[in-house]
Simulated assay, not measured.
Amino acid sequence: MKKTIQLSILLVLATVFTYAQNEYEASKAFPYGQPNPEAPKQIKDYQDLIGLCNCKSTSRNPDQTWAEPVDMTWKWRYIMNGKAVQDETLKADGNHSGSIRQFIADSSKWYVHYYSSAGPTTSLGTWEGNKNDDGNIVLFKAQNAPSGTEGFSRLTFYDISESGYKWIGEWVDKSGTITFPFWKIECVRE
């Protein structure tokens, strides 16, 4: 009898501990997870993107003209028990991608680690940045232009609302005076 009670107590404690470890993960009530209140407040920077959107993805052709838009689904969710954000794109052309997004309080920046089915790699590209006063999320990664000119890859989420958002990828020179858009996406919430 005493062993049965001890075992029951251990099972209850294990259940409570497991729930606390996964309390903010996806569930029936919250299919895309929830922000963990113990995470930095910036975890809510992406709250208006969380969920599912139908998008049009347009990138440059090799001759630098714009290609025809590709249908895409962009799914966002909280991961790591609500302490990080993951996004995943599923494109009609068969190229898929995603990112893991973590805010690091010591540097006061988001670090975004990108992966793609079109370019598997042993080392993920990383952009860093923040949400600005205009409500845009702007991320940078050092990247030279094909000509060798030093600059950055700049990724910007803008026009963020309950109905959707827009995204643009641009190459920007170090002074910020030359900008070349290479990819754009427009999304409408499902």
Rank of each mutant, 00 (worst) to 15 (best):
E25N: 12
I185W: 01
K75F: 03
L10D: 06
T18G: 13
R154G: 02
I178M: 06
I104R: 12
T65Y: 05
T18K: 04
I178D: 11
D87E: 13
V12S: 10
D45V: 00
S27R: 07
T65S: 15
Y46H: 08
A26N: 13
S97C: 11
V70P: 01
R154D: 03
N36W: 09
R154T: 08
E150M: 10
Y111H: 15
N61A: 14
P181D: 09
T156M: 07
T156W: 03
T58V: 09
L7G: 07
D134V: 01
Q34N: 09
H113M: 15
I43Y: 13
N136Q: 15
I5L: 14
T149P: 00
T15Q: 11
Y19Q: 05
G125N: 07
I79R: 01
D134E: 13
F103V: 07
L90E: 12
K56C: 03
S116Q: 10
F157P: 01
K131T: 01
Q21E: 11
G94A: 05
I100P: 03
T73H: 08
A145V: 03
Q143K: 15
G51D: 05
W171C: 00
A105F: 07
N36Q: 05
K109R: 14
G176F: 05
S116R: 15
T179D: 08
T65G: 06
K56M: 09
D133Y: 02
L7V: 00
I9T: 10
G119A: 14
Y46G: 04
Q47A: 15
G148C: 09
E25C: 10
S116E: 09
T18D: 04
D159I: 07
L139R: 08
I100W: 10
D63E: 14
T149G: 00
T89E: 04
Y32D: 12
T122W: 02
W167G: 00
T177E: 13
D159T: 06
E162T: 12
Q21G: 03
A14L: 14
L139F: 15
K41S: 09
W66F: 11
K56G: 07
Q6H: 08
F180N: 04
Y158D: 12
I43W: 06
S147E: 15
E68Y: 10
P37I: 04
Y24W: 08
S8A: 15
F152Q: 08
I168D: 00
I100T: 13
A84D: 07
P40E: 03
A142N: 13
Y78C: 11
L52K: 14
S27D: 06
G176P: 10
Y165A: 04
D134C: 01
L7R: 05
K56I: 01
P37V: 05
P181G: 04
K28H: 09
N130V: 13
E128M: 13
P35A: 09
M1R: 07
N132D: 15
E88D: 08
E68K: 15
P69N: 08
W127R: 05
